[in-house]
Amino acid sequence: MEDKKTEIFNNGKAIFSTKGFKQTNVSDITKAAGIAVGTFYNYFSSKEKLFLEIFLEENVKLKKSIMKSIDLNEEPLPLIKKLIALNINGMNSNPILKEWFNKDVFFKIEQQYREENGVEQVDFLYDSFAELFRSWQAEGKIRNDLDVELIMAFFTGIIIIDTHKDEIGIQHFPQIMDYMAEFVMKGLTDHPQAKPM
């Protein structure tokens, strides 16, 4: 049974990567996997559910590779700017993760994620960076009177801004993201709760 689920997953990933989320349908995946359409629904309740699982796996791989590629001892502001740039570049170069920038697709992904994990849980982009913020709080590099989830939400907000380039004005990118990261980090470091470094 696990073999069939793996076949569906792997074929789904390959087809989503080449055709995109919207252009892929369940029958494309089942045909490639050599199974009946009904069998698909024994493992995944919908195309969205399969895509979400693939998206989350790819997202975790990207975040792990980013964390391995950086120097965690670097000062917070340059490190955060690097993390944001690596994240956006990694998402843009991965056909599955690139769907994040397609508003219709992202809405469906987010909706599926909320249904499975609750309304409060939408932090699937930056979860792996939470430990970094906790360690900075423990070391006094950033203020510790704010919940890490709130801090993460600031940076999720910065990433989401990238999906609204057209409305904001593409000529302002990537500078707007750099400045927003700088302003947020200034608010986190220039505060009595953060010890001078």
Rank of each mutant, 00 (worst) to 15 (best):
residue 151 I to N: 02
residue 80 I to D: 04
residue 5 K to P: 02
residue 83 L to I: 15
residue 37 V to T: 06
residue 129 F to T: 01
residue 179 Y to R: 12
residue 148 V to L: 08
residue 156 T to A: 12
residue 160 I to A: 12
residue 182 E to Y: 04
residue 45 S to M: 03
residue 175 Q to L: 14
residue 52 L to V: 11
residue 26 V to W: 03
residue 47 K to G: 02
residue 151 I to H: 11
residue 28 D to A: 07
residue 22 K to R: 15
residue 165 K to Q: 12
residue 77 L to G: 09
residue 70 I to A: 00
residue 147 D to A: 09
residue 88 I to W: 12
residue 130 A to T: 09
residue 177 M to D: 06
residue 192 P to G: 12
residue 161 I to L: 12
residue 165 K to C: 13
residue 158 I to E: 00
residue 52 L to T: 13
residue 29 I to S: 05
residue 149 E to S: 13
residue 68 K to A: 13
residue 71 D to C: 11
residue 49 K to S: 09
residue 168 I to F: 15
residue 38 G to R: 07
residue 44 F to I: 01
residue 117 N to F: 15
residue 71 D to F: 03
residue 171 Q to R: 10
residue 15 I to D: 04
residue 67 M to A: 01
residue 35 I to V: 10
residue 90 G to Q: 03
residue 28 D to V: 02
residue 163 T to S: 11
residue 193 Q to K: 08
residue 10 N to Q: 15
residue 14 A to Y: 10
residue 105 V to C: 08
residue 185 M to G: 11
residue 59 N to H: 01
residue 3 D to I: 07
residue 141 K to W: 01
residue 125 L to Q: 10
residue 104 D to L: 15
residue 140 G to P: 01
residue 186 K to P: 02
residue 191 H to Y: 08
residue 184 V to S: 08
residue 173 F to R: 04
residue 20 G to V: 09
residue 73 N to F: 05
residue 164 H to S: 05
residue 93 S to K: 15
residue 78 P to V: 02
residue 135 S to G: 07
residue 166 D to M: 05
residue 29 I to A: 04
residue 123 D to F: 13
residue 76 P to V: 00
residue 89 N to G: 11
residue 142 I to Q: 01
residue 172 H to I: 03
residue 82 K to G: 00
residue 123 D to S: 02
residue 142 I to K: 04
residue 1 M to T: 14
residue 47 K to W: 05
residue 117 N to H: 14
residue 30 T to K: 01
residue 11 N to A: 05
residue 39 T to A: 15
residue 192 P to M: 14
residue 34 G to D: 08
residue 196 P to F: 00
residue 10 N to I: 14
residue 131 E to W: 01
residue 89 N to C: 06
residue 81 K to L: 03
residue 144 N to Q: 12
residue 36 A to E: 15
residue 124 F to M: 09
residue 170 I to H: 14
residue 70 I to Q: 01
residue 12 G to Q: 05
residue 32 A to W: 09
residue 68 K to T: 06
residue 193 Q to I: 00
residue 159 I to R: 02
residue 124 F to V: 07
residue 139 E to G: 10
residue 104 D to N: 15
residue 21 F to D: 07
residue 120 E to Y: 13
residue 168 I to G: 12
residue 29 I to H: 03
residue 129 F to D: 07
residue 58 E to K: 11
residue 186 K to A: 14
residue 186 K to D: 06
residue 139 E to C: 06
residue 121 Q to C: 07
residue 164 H to I: 03
residue 135 S to D: 10
residue 60 V to A: 11
residue 150 L to P: 02
residue 55 F to S: 03
residue 110 E to M: 13
residue 69 S to A: 15
residue 33 A to G: 04
residue 153 A to V: 04
residue 74 E to H: 06
residue 109 I to Q: 07
residue 191 H to P: 02
residue 39 T to W: 10
residue 48 E to A: 05
residue 90 G to C: 01
residue 29 I to P: 03
residue 55 F to I: 08
residue 195 K to S: 03
residue 67 M to F: 10
